[in-house]
C-alpha cells in the first residue's frame, strides 16, 4: 500500500500464546509484525481510513491469546474522509 492511514500498536498476549499470536497476526488485512518484546508484539496496521484501522484493531481481540490491543500511534494525513483534499 502506498497511501492510507498508518498506525502502530502493541498487542499484549498471554505469555504462552505470544508466538502463536505473532504468526497469526500477519493474516489480518494490513497488519505487519515488527517485533516481540516479552509478551508484547509490535505491529503496524495500514488501511484506507481511520475507521477501517480501528475495525482491524478491534478484530485482533478475537485472536486467541490476545489480552489487549493498545494503539500507540496513528497517522491519518492520507485519510480522505478527514482530509478530502489531502494535507
Amino acid at each position: 500500500m502506498d497511501h492510507g492511514v498508518i498506525s502502530s500498536l502493541v498487542v499484549e498476549t498471554a505469555p504462552e500464546y505470544t508466538q502463536a499470536v505473532a504468526s497469526e497476526l500477519p493474516q489480518k488485512p494490513g497488519v505487519e509484525v515488527h517485533g516481540i518484546e516479552g509478551y508484547k508484539i509490535v505491529i503496524t496496521i495500514e488501511s484506507e481510513t481511520v475507521d477501517e484501522s480501528h475495525d482491524i484493531a478491534n478484530g485482533l481481540m478475537d485472536i486467541t491469546g490476545v489480552i489487549g490491543v493498545n494503539l500507540v500511534y496513528l497517522n491519518f494525513e492520507d485519510d480522505k474522509t478527514i482530509y478530502p483534499d489531502g494535507v
Binding site: 502493541v10 481511520v50 493498545n70 494503539l71 500507540v72 500511534y73 496513528l74
Partner: peptide
C-alpha cells in the same frame, strides 16, 4: 480519538 487511545496505552 488518537489522544484518548494513546493515553490509555
Amino acid at each position: 480519538a488518537v489522544l484518548v487511545a494513546a493515553e490509555g496505552a
